[in-house]
């Protein structure tokens, strides 16, 4: 399958929270655990108020920092979405710190974040949230199609909300969750261009391979040198013993 994306159209979201319920039920989440959080956001000054529902959920970044730092492969990219294999999660919590959006949480010692329902999407089904959304605000499809649709929707919204735009087209290599926003990203608490710190890249692509390499090299070098060094040392010990015996014999004959 190609690159999929989830379209989240905040211009169509009615805040019913059916997606949250479907997600919790479908994914059998623990009490209190949720992969989607929705809050109503009202902006402006009375009587010039605008409101929208803000979704806080995994953005499925193409250059996902959580996937980069996950040491066990519990987080991975599947068809453009960031999948989770809970059985592989070690509970290290690196993803919690690394995510520029602050999405992953630790629940019962393992990562808790949207899995993209990749188990369903790989069987041709839609994620639970998309299946349930009654207003058509959530959709899943090939990323290019979803992007075209998002642009159309943003253009339509722009007639009424001049700052309406698509979020996720370029951020972090292109997000797997495309948002149609009726306003500027910052109004929804979204950074314009989130960054993964260079220290994460240095750690993952520099220090870790170097650590593995030097460790392997030290084992290899000592293993190879061992055979030679041990033989040399034993030869040296024999020579010293012979020297000592000769000295003792000399002492005896001198008496």
């Amino acid at each position: 399958m190609g690159q999929n994306a989830i379209l989240v159209d905040l211009g169509q979201c009615i805040g019913c929270q059916a997606c949250i319920v479907a997600c919790k039920t479908g994914r059998e989440l623990a009490p209190g655990e949720a992969y989607i959080h929705i809050r109503e956001d009202v902006r402006g000054r009375f009587p010039n108020l605008t409101g929208s529902f803000v979704h806080h959920r995994c953005f499925h970044c193409a250059d996902a920092a959580c996937v980069a730092v996950c040491p066990t492969g519990a987080l991975s990219k599947v068809d453009g979405l960031t999948a989770v294999d809970l059985a592989k999660c070690s509970g290290c919590g690196y993803c919690v710190d690394a995510c520029p959006y602050g999405i992953p949480e630790m629940v019962d010692g393992h990562v808790s974040k949207c899995t993209g329902c990749t188990d369903l999407t790989q069987e041709g089904q839609e994620p639970w949230c998309v299946q349930t959304c009654p207003s058509g605000a959530l959709k899943l499809g090939p990323r290019e199609s979803m992007l075209s649709l998002a642009r159309e929707r943003a253009a339509l919204l722009a007639k009424r909300f001049t700052s309406a735009q698509v979020y996720g087209e370029t951020q972090l290599g292109g997000l797997g969750a495309l948002f149609v926003l009726p306003d500027e990203p910052l109004a929804f608490g979204l950074p314009e261009q989130p960054q993964v710190p260079t220290t994460i890249t240095a750690w993952q692509r520099g220090v870790q391979p170097l650590t593995q390499g030097i460790t392997g090299l030290s084992v290899l070098a000592t293993a190879l040198a061992f055979v030679f060094a041990r033989r040399e040392h034993h030869r040296e010990k024999r020579a010293l013993a012979a020297q000592a015996a000769q000295g003792e014999a000399g002492d005896d004959s001198g008496r």
Binding site: D97, A98, E105, V196, P197, T199, Q208, I214
Partner: peptide, 26 residues
Amino acid sequence: LKGSLGATWLPVMAMLHDVSMLAVTV
């Protein structure tokens, strides 16, 4: 400090841990 180190301090601490353990291992 799991979960509160942030994206800057997590790799700093992890790199320090990796390099220290590399020294111990060698």
